[in-house]
């Protein structure tokens, strides 16, 4: 599992999922003779791992009217190749993402794309893991310097237009898990 946070800003991290290989001792020993043969098992377990990097803060320009959505390309590494993402809002109300001024709120929505550009979109609910998403880089934790996904934030026009003038902020926490 990997997680990150964004204040419509984001911090990334890496966490690893693992399990232990059960050690079943199966080595056999040779007996004296013209030749002698023994055997040993060789076992390795490749660990599932994910990371999300390349996150940036998402800062909208000051505007009297609803600004256009903003997207941030990111690198998702998952050696199984697929993953789920759980993006939660610090000011959530139920599953709704919200910006807060301290006295008022503006709702917004978050979508996840399985490519740095283009790709399929998944609408997210705060605090709920997405369905399995494909397209992660399976071999490079840095995606070879590229991006394999992007997060998009869309301001809700109804709550934006009625909100008092102020600065509204939120922190998104992003958790990526291998699937």
């Amino acid at each position: 599992m990997a997680n990150g946070k964004t204040k419509l800003a984001v911090i990334a991290g890496v966490a690893l999922a693992s399990s232990l290989v059960a050690a079943a001792f199966a080595a056999t020993q040779g007996t004296p003779g013209a030749t002698s043969t023994g055997s040993a098992d060789v076992r390795a377990e490749k660990e599932s791992a994910v990371s999300i990097t390349g996150l940036n803060d998402i800062v909208f320009a000051a505007s009297a009217t609803t600004p256009a959505p903003l997207a941030d390309p990111v690198c998702v590494f998952s050696n199984p190749g697929s993953y789920t993402v759980n993006v939660s809002s610090a000011n959530a109300a139920g599953g709704t993402y919200r910006l807060s001024s301290g006295s008022g709120f503006i709702n917004y929505s978050v979508s996840w794309f399985n490519a740095g550009s283009g790709g399929a979109t998944v609408a997210l609910t705060s605090g709920t893991a997405s369905p399995s998403i494909t397209g992660a880089d399976q071999t490079s934790p840095t995606c070879g310097g590229g991006d394999t996904a992007r997060i998009q934030v869309t301001i809700d026009p109804a709550t934006y237009i009625s909100a008092p003038a102020a600065t509204y902020t939120d922190t998104l926490t992003i958790i990526v898990s291998p699937t």
Binding site: V21, A40, R43, E45
Partner: peptide
């Protein structure tokens, strides 16, 4: 000849 003392090789779980 004889070979003995063999053990399994179990690598730790790792990425």
């Amino acid at each position: 000849v004889r070979i003995s003392g063999l053990s399994d090789f179990i690598f730790p779980v790792s990425m």
